[in-house]
């Protein structure tokens, strides 16, 4: 009899706890609030020069995975920030390139070839979701005329942006999303490593599930969140000492913080891919070859992007940029 009573009590406590938490989550209004602005000293408008050449893609180091990108290109040193994306939304709205309809920022996409394969979706030419407004996790608001960013989040990576929205941003400025090969080369450099900074991982290197709890005090929040771009640069914030987590080519946040949409499309499937892992990820997703994917209209609180661009006039690239300590050119030598 006593056993039965104990069992009933255990079940009652468990049920009540679950109910309490369920109700609690509904009550919390976490979106659109202000935090303290943290200056990381990293310029989100800067680009890294990636020289043409061979590199190892993927998880396994053998000749099958030795790939060559036979052109120079540039890639953003950081993820696109909220401030940059809000600026784009304002400019694109003024230029008539996007429209706002029922709390949704929409933009045109010319469509994909449809093969009628299993699980494949028809993506016809038309207007698609770029960025949802009033979605939990958004840091960009729209007052009917202008897009603004929640204070303190200006230099955090933009999240909740769809693949269409990421592509739209890059295209608006004449750039593009990086391909997977471009992304991996930018993250790994000319040698073979698991993470952009080397082969070890600890909370001081990146914003992922293990570090996220430690960062809350510094960020002034009580839940998981992105960090400002370039946060893991060797600086000390409060009592949290970061390590310099730049990739060999000088890119920040190529592991953790937010997943990054990439350009690649595959026939017979509609999913687009992401790289790098996020603040919600286990360390396994931060490995350079790890992937995530979703439909191009999918958005989430840990998905962002960065752009790449061709080097049309190589002479325009300064010698300083080519020879910088983090330049792959120099490392290869």
């Amino acid at each position: 009899m006593r056993l039965n009573k104990i069992l009933v009590i255990i079940l009652a406590v468990a049920f009540s706890a679950a109910l309490f938490v369920g109700c609690d989550t509904e009550e919390q209004g976490w979106h659109h609030f202000e935090i303290k602005y943290i200056d990381t000293g990293v310029n989100s408008n800067s680009w890294a020069f990636i020289p043409a050449g061979e590199f190892f893609e993927g998880q396994f180091k053998n000749l099958n995975h030795l790939k060559k990108i036979d052109y120079d290109y540039e890639i953003m040193v950081t993820d696109v920030t909220n401030a940059q994306y809000a600026k784009y939304l304002n400019e694109a709205l003024a230029a008539g390139k996007i429209k706002v309809d029922e709390n949704k920022v929409l933009g045109f996409y010319p469509g994909d070839k449809y093969y009628g394969y299993r699980h494949e979706r028809k993506i016809n030419p038309g207007y698609y979701l770029y960025y949802p407004l009033e979605e939990p996790g958004d840091r960009i608001k729209f007052d009917g005329k202008i897009f603004t960013v929640d204070r303190g989040f200006e230099n955090h990576p933009v999240v909740n942006v769809t693949w269409f929205g990421a592509r739209g941003y890059c295209q608006f400025y004449g750039w593009r999303l990086p391909t997977e090969l471009e992304w991996e080369k930018a993250a790994r450099g000319p040698d073979f490593r698991a993470y952009p900074w080397g082969n070890e991982i600890s909370p001081e290197y990146a914003n992922y599930n293990l570090s996220n709890k430690k960062l809350r005090k510094i960020l002034g929040v009580n839940h998981g969140i992105t960090t400002p771009v370039g946060f893991f640069n060797g600086k000390k914030y409060g009592d949290f000492q970061t390590k310099d987590a730049r990739s060999p080519y000088g890119l920040y946040d190529m592991a953790g913080n937010v997943w990054q949409w990439i350009a690649d499309k595959y026939p017979k499937m509609s999913d687009r891919f992401m790289k790098g892992g996020s603040w919600m990820s286990y360390d396994i997703y931060l490995r350079i070859w790890a992937r995530n994917s979703a439909l191009p209209w999918y958005h989430d609180i840990d998905i962002g992007f960065r752009c790449a661009r061709d080097v049309k006039n190589p002479e325009m690239i300064s010698e300083e940029a080519k020879q910088s300590p983090t330049s792959g050119e120099k490392l290869e030598k």
Binding site: A17, A18, V21, T25, W30, P136, G137, G224, I301, D302
Partner: peptide, 18 residues
């Protein structure tokens, strides 16, 4: 299915506890 990712943390915490 039950909770938006933005509000998942407490839900996940109690779930992990179980």
């Amino acid at each position: 299915l039950f909770v938006h990712p933005y509000y998942q943390e407490p839900f996940v915490n109690i779930n992990m506890l179980f």
